[in-house]
Amino acid sequence: MSYRVKRSEFDDILSKLQEDYKIYAPTRKKDKGTFSDTDLVLYDRVSSLEEIDFNSKTKYSPKEVVFPITQTLFYFNGDEYIEAEDKGEKVLVFLRPCEVNAFKRLDKIFLENGPQEDIYYKRLREKVKFVVMECTEGFDSCFCVSMGTNETEDYSIFIKVSDEEVFCEIKDEKLTEVFADQESTDYTPEFIQENKQQVEVPALEDITTDLFDSEIWKEYSKRCIGCGRCNTVCPTCSCWTMQDISYQDNENIGERRRVWAGCHIDGYTEMAGGHDFRTTYGDRMRFKTLHKIYDFRKRFDIDMCVGCGRCEDVCPQYISFVGAIKKLNQAIKEEKNNG
């Protein structure tokens, strides 16, 4: 069922939705960007249409909603372990199709991988509903069409905003009530069909361990600085590290948290005693690249990368992920010709 809502009335709808849901959406933080007098666009709580930035790509993905940057797992009280409680709040996230698809990738790791589900992820994830924002133009660095993540059917509401109106397709019956007074229309969601960037992901059988030693990775040892921005902005990077702390005013009490970790950042593979593995940035670039477009697919049948292009947007060394995939394709071709 689709509705046409006047912009001026949309805040009423948001207010009604907020009775049951916390609403997250892309929003602009004035002058909070890394460089002075620049804004930071990211996902945060919003309560009005005006606060939602429909026209910008957020610097960070919406994954924080289900995978917080810092998350307390449990508390220590003497020998007792007390699970951190879950507020159980329901969440609506305004996001783009590629980002819905990114949640599917996170689901694979947190819910399907290994012997048990991750209960902390699950209890947040099952409370999330998607409001997909129509995205037919994309941005310069996007390549979602190449990754097959430009479309999604998994949403409660699909929304398109024009100067005067907001068009909404409602799939979730529990939400239709809020739109009851609105004029129905025949709005059909559209998806982007062509990005400015295209790339072909190599076939699984074309990746051999010989390619691990390829010269293409060595270039990145010289270019990458291991800052980890590509990891932190990525909607599918799901790695984390545990941290224990004791409270400064009472050392008997403390907590175990997890925080995001990134495979480009020093210490990611370092074990107690100092033994480390991927010490060159080229090795880390290879590890990340192959995870995003090769070995994740080998394990779960879908590529991890959703083609949002954020890693390219933020890299201070202008490393392009599409560029890396293209170099890999070239290396595969050369390998075959030599082969």
Binding site: K32, G33, F35, Y60
Partner: peptide, 13 residues
């Protein structure tokens, strides 16, 4: 602020 990969550091605007 310049080095932070998560914008944990921002400037007082």
């Amino acid at each position: 602020i310049a080095k932070c990969p998560t914008n944990a550091w921002t400037r007082d605007a």
